[in-house]
Design a protein around this nucleic acid. Structure first.
Length: 483
RNA sequence: UCCUUCUUAGCUCAGCUGGUUAGAGCACAUGACUGUUAAUCAUGGGGUCCCUGGUUCGAGCCCAGGAGAGGGAGCCA
């Protein structure tokens, strides 16, 4: 009995002349002889050669795209040109058929031809079996692993912050309500409001929009912590960069100021991208080529200057540009783009929030590399960000990536109790409910900082994909919760 | 949520100024071939033209409403 070998390992070729067994799903069956089998361990298929003259014709008919097969045979150097090794099949087992006749109901929808990303999104449960999505989700895995590896090597503690929260004061966005009350007949208070005292938790609860506040509590004990978990926003955002359910990495570090925070973020991004380039070289090369092929149909002016691999390497080889909000406003105001009124929103003066066209100009036209923007006006940022000495700006930072926009948002936190409380009052955030959070400022407060990295946006950048729905297995967006 | 474009065969698309029986490539089926590389060659089947209503002698095409998708914007990660 030969034990199964993963196709990735068979392709290494050091098992040559040995009998091997592989199991996987048929991609194509050419010439009644050559089965391309993929088991997800690699972007590459193994070619299994059957002798159709002494194989049962009924078995041959069942070798169709999508079918699951196991083959046993001798691994030999390939006679053909497209691959170095192949398996001469001595035994084949069909584990699961896949109907290939499209005139029949429930036929396998993936055909040996190119499909549009939009079509594959409708069959997200099967799209893992394509080259593109195989590559994307292997890269996604590697990036997730690299993030844990990076923080672990730096001595960070991985915190699991709660998914269900009662805090509605984080201000990061609209929340999904969590309730076990009967939606048709909820208990009411005397004033006619829904009585959440009778709900499961005895109060109104929601899905988390951020683990940051809980992360800060932990950082006041472990010094360096991070979270990596699902996050939920009930915003009615219909863009290629937003999801209702996404994964976020939120490190929080005691004794870090904004500069330390920025340096950690840049180091982490470069670390994980380097790691993925090393571990998933073939996948990223495939995705790079996919992007080139896609852009062939576009006019010259819309094509990228760098291919995906070059773009990633360029990002690794250069320091991120670091400028303050105030400097960014000056650059934008003095730009020909602004003077020629090419912006939809003309930069008038200091204080306005930057529109994505401005961010894109800074990243893609002016600096042509990732940009860290710092020290935003306090009025356009969150209550917990540390007030700068000028009294006008806060110690915030956003990292902007080409093609993606904001990939990281972070800040040094306001550790001074009085200043934090007065900010909360200004922004109508109830300090009583947030007493547990304010305790960190009452007992052994220290300067600290942290940031949030949108994991899917990182995956977008590394895979060169342009729609966030294509880098998460089963995307949740307004009006869409399939699978 | 706003702006905009689209929806025709399993997939990707064409369809002229509103005109008779709606096309192509790929996929699929059948056959041939048998060292292929999304195999090739031949033959064949395959349509609720997104839905509802309207205009018209006549609607895939025009009008109104609806649904779904793409791109852009806002909010953000």
């Amino acid at each position: 009995m030969t034990t199964r070998t993963k196709i990735k390992d068979v392709l290494k070729g050091n098992l040559i002349d040995q009998t091997v067994n592989v199991k996987g799903w048929v991609r194509t069956f050419r010439n009644n002889s050559f089965i391309a089998i993929n088991d997800g361990s690699s972007i590459n298929n193994i070619q299994a050669v059957v002798n159709f003259e002494n194989t049962n014709p009924d078995t041959l008919k069942r070798i169709t795209p999508g079918a699951c097969v196991g083959v046993t045979g001798k691994l030999v150097a390939s006679q053909g040109k497209g691959q170095t090794v192949e398996i001469i099949v001595s035994d084949i087992e069909i584990y699961g058929d896949a109907e290939s006749d499209v005139t029949k109901p429930n036929s396998y929808p993936l055909q040996p031809k190119a499909h549009s990303l939009e079509f594959l999104r409708e069959i997200a449960h099967l799209r893992f079996r394509t080259n593109t999505f195989g590559a994307i989700f292997r890269v996604r895995h590697t990036l997730a692993y690299a993030i844990h590896k990076f923080f672990n090597e730096k001595g960070f503690v991985y915190m699991h912050t709660p998914i269900i929260t009662s805090s509605d004061a984080e201000g990061a966005g609209e929340m999904f309500r969590v309730s076990t009350l009967d939606p048709k007949n909820p208990p009411l208070t005397e004033t006619g409001e829904i009585d959440y005292k009778q709900d499961f938790f005895g109060k109104s609860t929601n899905l988390t929009v951020s683990g940051q506040l809980e992360g800060e509590l932990a950082a006041m004990a472990f010094s360096d912590v991070y979270t990596f978990g699902p996050t939920f926003r009930a915003e009615n955002s219909n863009t290629a960069r937003h999801l209702a359910e996404f994964w976020m990495i939120e490190p929080e570090m005691a004794f870090y100021d904004l500069k330390d925070n920025m340096a950690l973020a840049e180091e982490m991004l470069k670390y994980v991208i380097t790691y993925a380039l090393d571990k998933n070289k073939e996948d990223i090369e495939f995705l790079s080529q996919r992007l080139l092929d896609e852009e062939k149909n576009k006019p010259q002016t819309e094509r990228s200057e760098l291919n995906l691999l070059e773009k990633l390497n360029f990002c690794l080889g250069n320091e991120f540009a670091k400028i303050t909000y105030t400097e960014a406003i000056d650059i934008l105001r003095e730009s020909n783009h602004n003077k020629k009124k090419k912006f939809q929103y003309i930069i008038e003066g200091w204080g306005a929030d930057l529109q994505s066209e401005h961010e894109r100009y800074l990243v893609e036209k002016h600096f042509k590399k990732p940009v860290i923007l710092t020290d935003y006006p306090k009025d356009i940022k969150s209550f917990y960000m540390r007030m700068n000495d000028d009294g006008k700006t806060v110690a915030a930072m956003d990292i902007l990536f080409p093609g993606i926009g904001e990939i990281i948002g972070g800040s040094q936190r306001e550790e001074r109790l009085e200043k934090l409380e007065s900010r909360m009052k200004d922004m109508h955030i109830p300090t009583e409910e947030m007493s547990w959070y304010l305790d960190t400022r009452r007992f052994g407060a220290c300067p600290h900082a942290g940031f949030g990295l949108g994991f899917e946006r990182l995956v977008l950048f590394v895979t060169g994909m342009t729609n966030i729905r294509d880098v998460i297995a089963f995307p949740r967006t307004p009006n869409n919760c399939e699978f």
